[in-house]
């Protein structure tokens, strides 16, 4: 394999518009964030090749997606149909990368997915339950002292927000590293493994197209994550809180 870390970015479901056939899609912002920070982005495509993906690739990113077929713990009547096979595919990827100690980053729905893969749960309709919607808006977050997100961006800053679902019961061995003004979970870190989740979209907080304008630049996060993937590939053990 190449010297550059190879980063696997999972997909969202779509309908191929030439054949109207079932397909897989990814917004380009994710691959730009990876490629712009030294990682080679690839998308996994087939459920029968999970071991191959986990063996050859150095890190895993779960992107956001339109809706979510939740794992147990979700009110059934709120379930939007679909995504079941994708959930199962991503759970298999998560387990394979986690078993090898390889880094995993979840973004937005991917962050919720990381939480669910570790036996946490999510709830729908943030607007109803908290009184404040989080779709297509920006707000501040407060971070936990000493966490990765605090070291990279400080203790209080603006992020974008594009979600209606949110983390309810926290997954096993996760800790909350950022919260919204209403107290919702905005970022998580695993207590010992290189597993991270961000409820906002850091891949849209880059360069000339940064959303929102007052957000910090996200490249340092991606650079750190991709470097970490390379270090773990090269046999260096993961040390939590080692980020300077």
């Amino acid at each position: 394999m190449s010297k550059k870390p190879v980063i696997l970015i999972a997909w969202g479901p779509c309908l191929d518009l030439q054949f109207y056939a079932q397909g897989m899609m990814l917004t380009k912002a994710y691959e730009w964030a990876v490629a712009g920070n030294g990682g080679i982005p690839l998308m996994p495509l087939d459920r029968s090749c999970i071991e191959d993906y986990a063996e050859r690739c150095d890190g895993l990113i779960f992107p956001g997606a339109m809706n979510f077929k939740p794992l147990p713990g979700i009110p059934q009547e709120k379930i939007i149909e679909g995504h079941a096979r994708r959930d199962e595919f991503q759970k298999a990827l998560f387990d394979a990368f986690k078993a090898k100690g390889k880094p995993i980053m979840g973004i937005c729905e991917g962050h919720q997915k990381v939480n669910c893969c570790l036996n946490g749960s999510i709830l729908l309709d943030l607007a109803e339950s908290s009184g404040v919607g989080h779709f297509n808006t920006a707000h501040t977050v407060k971070t936990k002292k000493g966490s990765l997100i605090e070291k990279i961006w400080g203790d209080d800053f603006y992020i974008n927000s594009y979600h209606n679902y949110y983390v309810d019961r926290l997954g096993d061995d996760l800790e909350i590293t950022a919260v919204s003004p209403q107290g919702n979970v905005e970022a998580v870190e695993h207590k010992s493994l290189p597993i991270f989740g961000f409820q906002f979209h850091p891949e849209r907080m880059r360069g000339d197209d940064k959303i929102p304008a007052e957000a910090p630049e996200a490249d340092p996060l991606f650079r750190w994550f991709i470097d970490l993937c390379g270090q773990i590939r090269d046999g260096k053990p993961y040390v939590k809180d080692a980020c300077k």
Partner: peptide
């Protein structure tokens, strides 16, 4: 937003 896609087959 621009995106990439492929069909499963």
């Amino acid at each position: 937003r621009p995106f990439y896609l492929t069909k499963r087959s």
